[in-house]
């Protein structure tokens, strides 16, 4: 009888330990998933600016600019979650707020990119700008917003399992902070570049061809 009770208690302890370890791994995975979200949008926004705008000389149209804005707004959700997690202040409520920002930002972005897809949807329309793998940048933008919605949906499906747990290592924490500030820098650079494109005018023309700040 004593042996059975002791064996049962030991079994419960083992199960509890395994569960705690699984929660810890899921939490760490949840943290890096949020960081990866930010990395993906920093990469996409940087490619749009440095490859297409500066490299190929394609001036972004007003709708392209609003889609860049929506990508940044969606990314601010994970930025909130990651920074709060790094400070040890993340609660389930704050996690939900961050996911809410990502979802709403993605919905706003999807509305914007859908409008541009529809502008060029008729047969024979060449589209705006260069196509990558047969799809124009605004179509890819719509796909990224759909991916954000799927990402948030999957995370929410698991409930609290993927509430992020920040890394303890100095290297991991430093890397996460660098990525957070890389997004802030990306927003600042976009602001300066759009100022060069728009100059002191209130709005961009429908089909910009030059940087109006420089004449």
């Amino acid at each position: 009888m004593t042996t059975n009770t002791s064996s049962s208690a030991s079994h419960s302890r083992t199960a509890a330990t395994l569960r705690a370890e699984a929660d810890y791994v899921a939490g760490r995975l949840g943290f890096w998933a949020q960081v990866l979200f930010i990395v993906a949008y920093v990469g996409i926004l940087s490619t749009a600016m440095f490859v297409f705008q500066f490299g190929l000389g394609e001036m972004p149209c007003p709708l392209c600019i609003t889609q860049r804005m929506a990508m940044m707004l969606a990314s601010l959700g994970p930025v909130y979650v990651v920074t709060q997690s790094l400070r040890g202040l993340l609660t389930t409520t704050k996690f939900m707020v961050g996911l809410g920002m990502a979802v709403l930002g993605a919905i706003v972005g999807a509305i914007m990119s859908t409008r541009q897809v529809e502008l060029h949807i008729l047969p024979g329309d060449p589209g705006y700008g260069t196509a990558i793998f047969g799809l124009h940048l605004y179509t890819w933008a719509l796909i990224t917003f759909m991916v954000v919605l799927i990402f948030a949906g999957v995370i929410l499906l698991f409930g609290h399992e993927f509430v992020p747990i920040a890394p303890r290592s100095r290297g991991g924490r430093r890397l996460a902070w660098i990525i957070v500030w890389a997004l802030v820098a990306t927003i600042a650079i976009n602001m300066l570049v759009v100022f060069a494109e728009e100059g002191f005018n209130w709005f961009l023309p429908d089909d910009p061809t030059r940087y109006m700040l420089f004449g």
Binding site: L76, V184, N190, F203
Partner: peptide, 10 residues
């Protein structure tokens, strides 16, 4: 206006 909106996002 675009610059101002980027300023708000920043």
């Amino acid at each position: 206006m675009d610059t101002i909106v980027f300023g708000l996002i920043l």
